[in-house]
């Protein structure tokens, strides 16, 4: 009798990509420093818009949300492939990866808002809600992409074939 164990890498996709890029020597330290700088700026702007910039907990939560959305953008635009993802990162940079993820989230907000009109939530609340459910905390298991697919299945049957198949 044979038992098959499927080993799955449950770390964040962005971190997998960065590690792989370093192994292949396609990324360097300067590129990593760029992530630190732009990540901090994006978290600040996110916190300014959705929480507030004074409390440390809010800033931390905002940084987790930003990281999760970058991951969604990277996965969706690269089709979950490492080589492809490195190409995308080098060509476009972190901010446009965030924008890719944010576009997906806005789609989700539109579908969910239409599907659950009775809740009478504003777009602002839906955005905040989804950003929190997709948020990624470094060092912990990330279920954001599964959440994203589940929400897509729930709220939009048209998108099912495109996204659920991968």
């Amino acid at each position: 009798m044979t038992t098959e164990l499927i080993k799955k890498d449950s770390r964040l996709f962005l971190f997998q990509v960065l590690e792989y890029g370093f192994e292949q020597k396609r990324l360097d330290q300067a590129f990593l420093n760029q992530l630190k700088k732009q990540g901090a700026q994006m978290s600040f702007v996110f916190a300014k818009r959705y929480y507030n910039v004074i409390q440390e907990a809010c800033l931390r939560q905002a940084s987790h949300c930003v990281l999760g959305i970058i991951n969604i953008g990277l996965i969706e635009s690269s089709g979950h492939g490492l080589d492809n993802a490195i190409d995308q990162l080098l060509q476009k940079g972190y901010v446009s990866m965030f924008k890719q993820g944010w576009t997906r989230l806005l789609d989700l907000v539109q579908y969910a808002g239409n599907a659950q009109k009775y809740l009478q939530r504003t777009n602002f609340e839906w955005e905040k809600n989804f950003a929190e459910s997709l948020s990624a905390e470094p060092g912990r298991e990330w279920v954001g992409h599964d959440e994203y697919l589940i929400h897509m299945l729930l709220y939009c049957n048209q998108k099912r074939r495109n996204n659920g198949a991968n």
Binding site: F46, V95, S96, W102, T103
Partner: peptide
């Protein structure tokens, strides 16, 4: 920081 301002202008626009 001017970079933050430009980020704020275009970060939440869909592509």
């Amino acid at each position: 920081d001017p970079e933050c301002k430009t980020l704020e202008m275009n970060m939440f626009l869909p592509v």
